Simulated assay, not measured.
Amino acid sequence: MANITFKGNPVTILGKELKVGDVAPDFSVLANDLSPFTVENIKGNVTIISVVPSLDTGVCDAQTRRFNEEAASLDGVSVLTISVDLPFAQKRWCGAAGIDKVQTLSDHRDLSFGKAYGLVIEELRLLARAVFVINQQGEVAYVEYVSEATNHPDYEAALAAAKQLA
């Protein structure tokens, strides 16, 4: 498992760490309208999955805004942001922030995504920060588990991986 810290303190991460080449595991999260969203929804598409602890924090806000800005120039690439924020809070935040190119999804119900992708911070019931790029065949083409949950991911590397596949 990845060694991840939160504000400098080691945390326990639940789930299996993914590697490039792995098949993207199934998961069930909620869209902002409470409809289910699973890995089936991204099959056949290049997808960036940006994972954040909570949209209501500075780094998570900046990460989601950055991917929203970049999404405008990513032809053939979908961008998702997954957190444990409630779908209602995600919808409110997106409206206030003008987020219109990234789809936010909530893993609050049973941490299905977090467990499947090795991201559940046991002590906080939050997801660790990470970025995945899933190719058209449903395989993990890029993965970054951010070692300090309050740091930014490597945006350029994730974007380059997605552009290469599109």
Rank of each mutant, 00 (worst) to 15 (best):
G138C: 07
N9G: 02
K163V: 10
Q164D: 13
A96N: 12
A157F: 05
D26F: 11
H108V: 13
A161E: 01
R129D: 03
I82V: 15
T104V: 12
I48N: 00
V29I: 13
S50W: 03
L105M: 06
G21T: 03
D33T: 01
I48E: 00
L119T: 00
Y117V: 09
G118S: 03
L34T: 11
Q136T: 11
S28C: 14
T81I: 05
G44P: 03
L14G: 09
R65S: 08
I49L: 12
K7I: 11
A128F: 05
E148G: 00
C60D: 10
L14A: 15
V140F: 06
T5C: 10
T64Q: 04
V59K: 04
Y145G: 07
A149M: 12
T5K: 14
R129C: 05
T57S: 15
S28L: 14
Q103G: 09
D61P: 01
N41G: 01
I42G: 04
P10A: 12
C60G: 07
Q90E: 13
D61W: 11
V146A: 09
N151G: 02
P10D: 04
V79Y: 10
I134T: 04
D61S: 10
T5F: 10
T81R: 00
R129E: 02
P87C: 07
I42Q: 01
K19L: 13
C60F: 03
L18D: 02
D56Q: 08
D110H: 12
V133T: 00
Q63K: 02
I42D: 00
I42P: 01
V23L: 15
S50F: 09
T12C: 07
D26H: 11
Y142N: 01
Q90G: 08
D61L: 11
S54L: 07
A162G: 01
A31V: 05
K163T: 12
D22K: 08
S73C: 08
S106Y: 04
A96I: 14
L124V: 09
L74I: 00
A160I: 05
V20Q: 09
R125T: 09
I121F: 05
D154L: 09
F88Q: 04
L119V: 00
A128Q: 06
F88K: 04
G95A: 13
T47L: 08
D22A: 06
A166P: 02
H152Q: 13
V102D: 01
G21M: 09
V140M: 06
S78E: 13
I42C: 07
Q137K: 15
M1P: 12
Q137H: 08
K115V: 13
V140L: 05
T81M: 06
L124R: 12
V102L: 05
